[in-house]
Design a protein around this nucleic acid. Structure first.
Lengths: 266, 266
DNA sequence: GCGCGTTTATGATTGACATTGATTGATTTG
DNA sequence: CAAATCAATCAATGTCAATCATAAACGCGC
């Protein structure tokens, strides 16, 4: 077996298991311990894996405290105050007992706090949202079925026939990576897939985006602005963006954050 | 078992119940007390858990009562040692990478600890099992969709067409309230409904019951003994029960628990 | 293509070092 | 006080890095 091939095998083994021991890799590749160690050392400097005593472990951010403790990987602490205000306004739209859909995302996750004191019927595809609401509220929780994707923190089924199609709600709440004339945009194809499953299952589509999202552009368009009924954002929204939304006949709710709240969030 | 692997299992056990004793962790990892103490000390300085006399406890001031802190309402501390041994034997049946189904329940929940160092494809209808494995393992997790029932801790859809029907596994693991000549019995109609959805989605049906369950009778029969392929129980099983199982041509696995482990679990 | 020296990859060996498990005695708990 | 738990120690084992020997791959002139 050649070097490249061993490296491939080693990386694959490390991706699979949490840890791969030297002996284990010897058996897998047929090579000697010395060779495996050299390979691990090489892959370590290439930053393809982490070298540990006894073997190697995966380097990827897929590590243990990946879920729930800090529900989403990046950009979680960014613009928390805005997101919180926006999420609060979103929850304020809902009446008690109403069925709603919440799509996964960092902005929509903020809805869990104002939702803690409510009693709604909530359908979501976000594992952290479901988890938090189950523990901290008395809302009725419904979850979509399928594989739990750790990175995106959503539950998604590759099949057409899932519970999603059996739930219909008054409102659906959704975040977005960017908002432009073409509509709502996302970066991750998996998120697009999850969102498209849910869209159309509610009377009213409510979009939650902080004002920075009007500058963002992403590769994938989720849906046009004509599908959006209501958009909640913060006061940083520019005139051009406001005009664009007005032209699309979207109800815009602008929230206000005062300095102390920004302080509190950081 | 290697250091990282032990750490994973230890963290998993600590998450489960707020406190895990040294002896308990020894049984779980197969390592000596000295090693476990060293591990706990290491994880303590890493701030992954808090070291306390007799063992370790979870770092986060844990949760509301109701979910996750103490995943199931009653009878959780009862016969823990037996359940743990039974669950360990169940996991030992599985090969790496294999698809399996785990039905919710207190006995099957114990499988999460030995599963912490494995990498399988796991389909479950139990929210706590999914949650725990997501946080403490690298297994692929698939969850059934539907309403999350807090009391039973399961996710159940009232509809026929859900992801459940798209998952097929080598083995399905299931607990039961009682086992008698009529078959497996449960007390809760909701659990029956959930289990019947899953049954038939696997080649081999493996039943996990501690020996006290042979005395129990419940109102609802889930399925006959002829559907059961394998049954794992503890050494308390009586002759009559053993004969009954043999007559039904069921492979019986009997686990053994020593005194110290019972001590540790209580 | 062939011969020949060089480079490179590999496997084995060795001594240094780290981890582990058992033992012992000290400390804490009830 | 008795039992449990802990810390310290040491021997055994496992793991590592360095070294050297072997063998395949390569380059190059002929």
């Amino acid at each position: 077996m050649h070097e490249k091939e061993r490296h491939r095998v080693i990386l694959s083994a490390v991706q699979d298991r949490p840890v791969a021991t030297v002996t284990e890799l010897c058996a897998l590749t047929g090579a000697s311990e010395a060779t495996i160690r050299r390979d691990i050392a090489a892959l370590h400097v290439q930053k393809k894996l982490r070298r540990i005593r006894g073997g190697a472990e995966a380097l990827n951010p897929n590590q243990l405290p990946g879920l729930a403790g800090r529900p989403f990987s990046v950009n979680e602490t960014l613009r928390i105050a805005q997101k919180r205000a926006i999420a609060g306004a979103a929850v304020a739209l809902c009446d008690e007992g109403e069925p709603i859909i919440i799509n996964g995302g960092t902005t929509t996750f903020q809805m869990v706090h104002p939702l803690a004191s409510r009693r709604l019927q909530i359908f979501t595809n976000s594992f952290p949202i479901a988890e938090h609401l189950l523990k901290n509220s008395k809302n009725t929780i419904m979850l979509s079925g399928g594989t739990v994707y750790r990175e995106q923190n959503i539950v998604l089924s590759p099949f057409e026939n899932d519970v999603t199609k059996n739930f219909y709600a008054r409102r659906m709440f959704i975040g977005a990576q960017g908002v432009g004339p073409l509509g709502l945009m996302e970066a991750d194809p998996l998120l697009i897939q999850a969102e498209q499953k849910l869209i159309g299952q509610a009377d009213e589509l409510v979009v939650l985006v902080d004002s920075s999202k009007f500058e963002n552009r992403s590769a994938l368009v989720l849906c046009g602005l004509d599908r959006v009924d209501t958009l909640i954002t913060d006061e940083g929204i520019g005139d051009r963006a406001a005009a664009m939304l007005e032209a699309a006949d979207i109800r815009v709710i602008v929230t206000h954050v005062n300095a102390s709240e920004i302080e509190a969030a950081s």
